[in-house]
Design a protein around this nucleic acid. Structure first.
Lengths: 158, 158
DNA sequence: CTACAAGATCAATATTAGCCACATTCCTCT
DNA sequence: AGAGGAATGTGGCTAATATTGATCTTGTAG
């Protein structure tokens, strides 16, 4: 039967491509111990299966003039369907919100906001976040620096 | 003199490449209103300046078998040089730590850990994090789901 | 032993990047 | 207004690479 789960070679492929998506199929093959053509086939299968969602450029936050990351945890007044949907819609719409997680515990959401400076954050807060209905509380924590920002998921072999 | 700062076209380029790095220079040019050759030149300049740090594949966390994100905030006993260095070294070494920020406020670091399930997180905690010297306290918050995970920085035109 | 899945190898084709040269446009400074 | 410089537009050429398809080999499970 045709293989369908992710094996060790696939994991190596994913690690390599998460580090550098510009490798040629030949270089890729060498890294994972395959020749170019089966290697290309596996990559295409991973793309088709949606394991690889796409290929993107990684931009330096500071050099792009956006050095500030702010973490914001948010509590909603109610967790009704309508509330959650409206919140999710706003999150998707606002580009300053780079990451958003639904959390366990006292706080409902954890966001990471990227801005060029603190005044920009203040504007974002005042004009967008605080105007959202259904938000009970907002708590901001500022990042002084990025110690690590990995593009590679921990694909441990088992 | 040769241009050196990022202008509106560069911003458009960066946005496009952060969405899809596989666009040909021609398609890219069409998006930003340039023909292929100056477009390619600008991209090369952005790469050389380090604004574009690289190109990577984006992998679906769940489909790759790593559905769990845990946020961990950490407080060190002291913030001496030596302590910070050791911590940074460990963070860089452990692939489960995907993101790490140095924070203001009561907590020193905020980490995002990616694992395949809760037992794996427990193992990570017991065998790695809690064994690090100089760590005063660890506080874990679990993510129930990813609402947004953007690869595009908010390049607002000004 | 057979069947099948996956890999290796090879060939043919087409797309694309990377260069380079040259003309043109746009902007700024004097 | 005029000069100079920076950046773009166009075209042409070459080399690298992806893509596809065919054929053969290998390892393995039934």
């Amino acid at each position: 039967m045709p293989r369908s789960e992710i094996d060790g070679i696939d994991r190596k492929l994913l690690v390599a491509l998460q580090q550098d998506a510009r490798l040629t199929t030949e270089q890729l093959g060498r890294r994972v111990g395959l020749s170019a053509s089966p290697c290309a086939r596996r990559v295409r299968l991973l793309e088709a299966a949606g394991v690889i969602k796409g290929y993107v450029a990684v931009v330096d936050q500071s050099k792009a003039g956006l050095p500030i990351s702010v973490f914001v945890s948010i509590k909603l007044e109610r967790q009704r369907e309508e509330e959650l949907d409206r919140f999710a819609e706003a999150v998707a719409r606002w580009p300053e919100i780079v990451d958003c997680y639904l959390m366990t515990g006292q706080r409902d959401y954890l966001l990471r906001i990227v801005v060029k400076d603190l005044p920009a954050y203040e504007t974002f807060l005042k004009q967008k976040l605080t105007r959202l209905e259904g938000v009970a509380s907002i708590e901001s924590s500022f990042a002084l620096g990025q110690v690590k920002h990995s593009t590679v998921l921990p694909m441990i072999e088992t």
